[in-house]
């Protein structure tokens, strides 16, 4: 593992640096932020200064502190959602692949149906009916996103399932659980790990977009997408402020994508 890290290309190292920086900021947010998440500390849209490293937002809160707390809220939300999405997606996908028959048919057709619906529109409609709260948000996005995870894990598991070592396990008389855990899962890990990165990016951007549309995390909670929305008006005055949270979102997704790219390259190379 360490050797692998040593051989990683520059792009992947930059990616890892970005992700680690973000995670550290998220974990130690209260220690890093000079002001409270919602405390009003100065004038509206002040510029850079020693007092406000990144200036202030549309109602005079310290933007740097908001960014730091925003990292925590936004990343944690996206991470939990992605985990949940993977839990649903992989379990159902593996079961469909190994069991086959009507279970596979039922699951796959249902998933096809959900996927025929554009995700953002589906989410908007659900949120319009249920209202936007953190649990609704997590659950809705996790369910919608798990369809893609299901597709991939089913396909990967199917590829592994036709291999003779799985047949050998079946002929030995092994049960479903053993086959999934011992034979399929270890071999499905590389594509699934890469997919986790991609799904995280997608979920992260998706939540940011919802927040930007005013339907994600609700104020006064700090989150990057919402901060872009709150300060959007500044841009027409030539004030860069909305670009900072938007840039932070872009920064983290680029970082994750750089790692995923390296990982995909690595796992495809190992196949040869």
């Amino acid at each position: 593992m360490l050797k692998l890290l040593q051989q990683s290309p520059l792009s992947a190292r930059i990616g890892m640096g970005i992700v680690i920086l973000n995670v550290l900021v998220a974990i130690f947010a209260p220690l890093i932020a000079p002001y409270g998440e919602t405390s009003i500390a100065g004038d509206v849209w002040e510029g850079f200064s020693a007092q406000f490293y990144l200036g202030t937002d549309h109602i005079g809160r310290d933007l740097f502190s908001r960014m730091v707390f925003g990292a925590r809220n936004t990343i944690a939300l996206a991470f939990i959602t992605t985990l949940l999405s993977f839990l649903f997606g992989t379990v159902l996908g593996f079961i469909a692949a190994v069991k086959g028959g009507w279970i596979d048919q039922l699951l796959s057709r249902t998933i096809d149906m959900i996927m025929a619906f554009p995700t953002l529109i589906f989410a908007l409609m659900i949120l319009s009916v249920l209202g936007s709260s953190i649990p609704t948000l997590i659950f809705t996005i996790a369910v919608l996103d798990s369809t893609r995870v299901y597709r991939l894990s089913r396909a990967v598991a199917m590829d592994i399932e036709v291999m003779e070592f799985v047949e050998a396990a079946r002929l030995r008389g092994e049960g479903l659980w053993w086959i999934i855990r011992q034979e399929i899962l270890p071999n499905a890990m590389p594509p699934l790990i890469a997919e986790f990165g991609l799904r995280f990016c997608f979920v992260f951007l998706f939540i940011a977009s919802l927040s930007f549309l005013g339907l994600g995390l609700q104020p006064p909670l700090a989150d990057w997408g919402g901060m872009v929305r709150e300060n959007a008006g500044a841009i027409t005055f030539g004030i860069y402020i909305p670009l900072i949270p938007a840039g932070a979102i872009a920064f983290l997704t680029v970082g994750v994508n750089l790692i995923v790219d390296w990982f995909l390259h690595l796992s495809s190379g190992l196949h040869e």
């Binding site: 291999m163 003779e164 070592f165 047949e167 050998a168 079946r170 002929l171 030995r172 008389g173 270890p186």
Partner: peptide, 28 residues
């Protein structure tokens, strides 16, 4: 049907495959 067979019968009949590459779990 395979599922209805007893463990003892499964034990007494074993199989070896054409492709040794895919007949062994690469992670084991």
């Amino acid at each position: 049907e395979l599922k209805k067979r007893e463990k003892e019968d499964l034990r007494r009949m074993q199989m070896i495959y054409q492709m040794p590459d895919t007949a062994l779990n690469p992670k084991q």
